[in-house]
């Protein structure tokens, strides 16, 4: 995983690749698995209640991260499967795609996880996630009234 150097906010958000809003939902988790932010724009199918949905999403990301860390073909010594990894440690992933959606994932050095669920044809969204992270740093972390670890309001 590569950490990005500059913390300056990008001058403009990345240009949308297609017209209209193709995003389904966004999740922001902190490193303890607390869902700080959840927004949905287009979600016709709902199988679970929101609390369980967030838990399942966090669990999926956690397990996929330990899977990719173990599967990493570039290193020989990979530790044991299922041992929690620190952010930036081990091989992580940036997106996965199914036939109905694409999930893009970013983890900051402090363990903030940003997840964007979009249309499966969406292009590489790493720049957009970085932009969202910059917004979080500028307007949430720097807000003196915000208590870390609580949902963003």
């Amino acid at each position: 995983m590569q950490f990005f150097g500059s913390s300056e906010i990008s001058p403009s958000p990345p240009l949308p690749t297609a017209s209209g809003n193709n995003a389904h939902m966004i999740y922001v988790f902190n490193r303890n698995g607390v869902c700080l932010l959840y927004r949905e724009w287009n979600r016709p199918l709902r199988t679970l209640d929101s609390n369980q949905d967030h838990k399942l999403m966090f669990g999926l990301l956690f397990s996929l991260k330990s899977l990719t860390a173990k599967m990493d073909p570039s290193s020989v010594e990979k530790g044991n499967l299922g041992v929690p990894q620190l952010p930036g440690q081990g091989c992580s992933f940036h997106s996965f795609r199914t036939n109905t959606y694409k999930l893009s994932f970013m983890e900051s050095p402090s363990g903030i996880k940003i997840i964007l669920v979009t249309h499966p044809k969406a292009s590489d969204l790493r720049d957009s996630l970085k932009y969202i992270y910059n917004l979080y740093v500028e307007y949430v972390v720097k807000n003196p009234l915000y208590t870390p670890g609580t949902p963003i309001k």
Binding site: M1, Q2, H24, M25, E40, N42, R43, P44, L45, L64, T68, M71, D72, C91, S92, F93, H94, S95, F96, R97, T98, N99, T100, Y101, V117
Partner: peptide, 15 residues
């Protein structure tokens, strides 16, 4: 999945 008819992950892009 936000839409019904999902058949699971087809491609996982790791580092």
């Amino acid at each position: 999945s936000p839409i019904s008819g999902c058949t699971g992950i087809e491609l996982l892009e790791a580092d």
